[in-house]
Amino acid sequence: MPPAADPHPPILQARKLCKVYGSGEAAVHALRDVDLDVARGEFVVLLGASGSGKSTLLNILGGLDRPSSGTLSFAGQPLTGVGEDALTTYRREHVGFVFQFYNLIPSLTVAENVALVTDIARDPMPVDEAIALVALSPRRNHFPSQLSGGEQQRVAIARAIAKRPELLLCDEPTGALDYATGKLVLEVIARINAELGTTALVITHNAAISGMADRVVRVADGRIDRIERPERRLTPAELAW
């Protein structure tokens, strides 16, 4: 008798992912046989030193890059071996990205920057709702130059979540911020994860941030070194570094 189907299959499932840049003696193995399942609604921290492969992994999970070999699926649908149009649709409809640098358009206001993604989303969140979720309603008509670094990063998060993505992928979202401001940004990401049920993956080299995760995936030399599950998820306010 075949085993019963998993009632809660992973939203992301990676098997034997490899990524090689170049060839021959100059080849760089950025990922080596990575297996990873990510549950829907989970908060995962990818922790590792610079050059460990964590950004390469995040880019492949988000459909920004392709693996050299291995398989990846989202909600049971394959992402490896599909065409560019399918990857574009995946990114547009299911994934929100937040990077270390905010990538806001200087000539647009907060509301206008957030509204950019609502034009291409199937079921977008009202712009003002997304701005309220990151606690920036009083700044909706300000330009990026009138905002602090932390406020600009929160605009970037609002823009990412305005299309209601199932996945929020964050690459060093506090890397350019000071301690106090970084905590405010982490609080916003935690709130999105808790209140909207958005699956969140956060890359960091800061081990202290791992305390707020459901699971911590430690990456070294292109491999998953180990996976840890904290006894209790800390709030960003409880983190110290």
Rank of each mutant, 00 (worst) to 15 (best):
A237T: 01
H205R: 01
Q13V: 07
S50A: 14
P173Q: 04
A4C: 09
G149Q: 07
V20T: 15
A49S: 14
V38Q: 03
R139Q: 11
E25I: 05
T80K: 07
T235F: 02
I11A: 08
M125Y: 07
P78D: 11
S137N: 10
K183S: 01
N103S: 08
L79H: 10
R164M: 10
S210H: 05
S55D: 09
N113T: 04
R15I: 13
D128R: 14
G81R: 11
R15H: 15
S137R: 14
V95E: 07
L17K: 03
I224Q: 05
I209P: 03
I105F: 09
T80H: 08
K54L: 02
E231D: 15
M125E: 06
D119W: 13
A5K: 15
L64M: 07
D214S: 05
F143H: 11
A130I: 09
L17G: 03
R91H: 03
T89N: 11
K16R: 14
A86H: 12
D35F: 13
R226V: 13
C18E: 07
L239P: 00
N103R: 03
P165D: 09
A194V: 09
L234H: 03
A132R: 14
M1D: 13
P10H: 05
I189D: 08
V117R: 12
V45N: 02
P10Q: 07
R32V: 13
E93F: 13
A162K: 13
A160R: 06
V98P: 12
A220R: 05
L184M: 06
E129F: 08
V219Q: 01
L17V: 04
I192T: 01
T71W: 07
A49H: 12
